[in-house]
């Protein structure tokens, strides 16, 4: 079954259209890179996909469940199948790496245990193995604000992994990282798809990183999907064309 299916998604902020009729299908185990110039609507797309923002129109299905119409407890439950990795990591700074990964388990742990911070042993073990998979087990008891940016981003990925979400979204997860950390983070995201069969949608600004990472590339410009090709066909020429402003583009010959 298609992991994520988006049909005709449109959204406007204060009357200004930001997304216009976006269609997107992602299969389990597939990595899709979303590229496009600044202001194209990538972040808005992710916010609509997670229902942090409710899109004005369109259909949104996650593993066959219609997310667009849900509210309250039903929405909370459906969101458990979605994970989002933010550009700014969004860890709780004063919790340890392990505790931050446990945040991904909150929905499944009884409230009293969360309040008293008494997580069952198997939950802690699960969180530890998620940290291990992103190569950070030895930082388990380090506070998040003592970790480097790349390490924090990998903790955020471990948090999504722990949540068992089958659809993982990542909004410019490597934008503020050096090349080595960026490589480690993208590899961790890639392995979510390869080893865990998750559907991964990730926006990127570094088009040169796309080739070794994604299976498919979706190009957004001015809120519209203008490109949807296998990664192999995302050549430097295609990339340059996508990032060239409308006015400077030469008409098709």
């Amino acid at each position: 079954m298609t992991a994520l299916s988006v049909r005709g998604l449109s959204h406007a902020y204060g009357g200004v259209p930001v997304l216009t009729s976006v269609d997107l299908d992602v299969e389990p185990g597939q990595v899709v890179a979303v590229v496009g110039p600044s202001g194209a609507g990538k972040t808005t797309l992710f916010r609509c996909l997670t229902r942090l923002v409710r899109a004005d129109a369109g259909a949104l299905e996650v593993h066959g469940r219609d997310l667009q119409q849900l509210e309250g407890a039903a929405l909370r439950d459906a969101r458990r199948d979605l994970g989002l990795v933010f550009q700014s990591y969004n860890l709780v700074r004063r919790l340890t790496a392990l505790q931050n990964v446990l945040v991904g388990r909150l929905a499944d742990v009884p409230t009293w245990r969360v309040v008293l911070r008494r997580f069952p042993a198997h939950e802690q073990a699960l969180a530890a193995s998620c940290l291990d998979q992103v190569g950070l087990l030895r930082f388990a008891h380090t506070r998040a604000d003592r970790l480097s940016g790349g390490q924090q981003q990998r903790v955020a990925i471990a948090r999504v992994l722990a949540s068992r979400a089958r659809v993982v979204l990542a909004d410019e997860p490597v934008a503020s990282l050096d090349p080595a950390s960026a490589g480690a983070v993208l590899a961790a995201l890639r392995s979510l798809a390869t080893s865990h069969g998750k559907a991964v949608v990730c926006s990127l600004h570094q088009v040169d990183l796309v080739a070794g990472f994604a299976d498919r590339v979706v190009g957004l410009r001015d809120g519209r999907v203008v490109l949807d090709v296998p990664a192999a066909r995302f050549t430097p020429d295609v990339a340059r064309d996508l990032y060239t402003p409308e006015l400077e583009r030469t008409p098709a010959r």
């Binding site: 909370r76 439950d77 458990r80 989002l84 860890l91 945040v103 909150l106 409230t111 969360v114």
Partner: peptide, 19 residues
């Protein structure tokens, strides 16, 4: 950000607020 991240895990208010 961290609040949104916790909200997206599908956990309720009491859990998110306390943890």
């Amino acid at each position: 950000g961290p609040l949104e991240a916790a909200e997206l895990t599908g956990a309720g208010k009491v859990k998110t607020a306390s943890f």
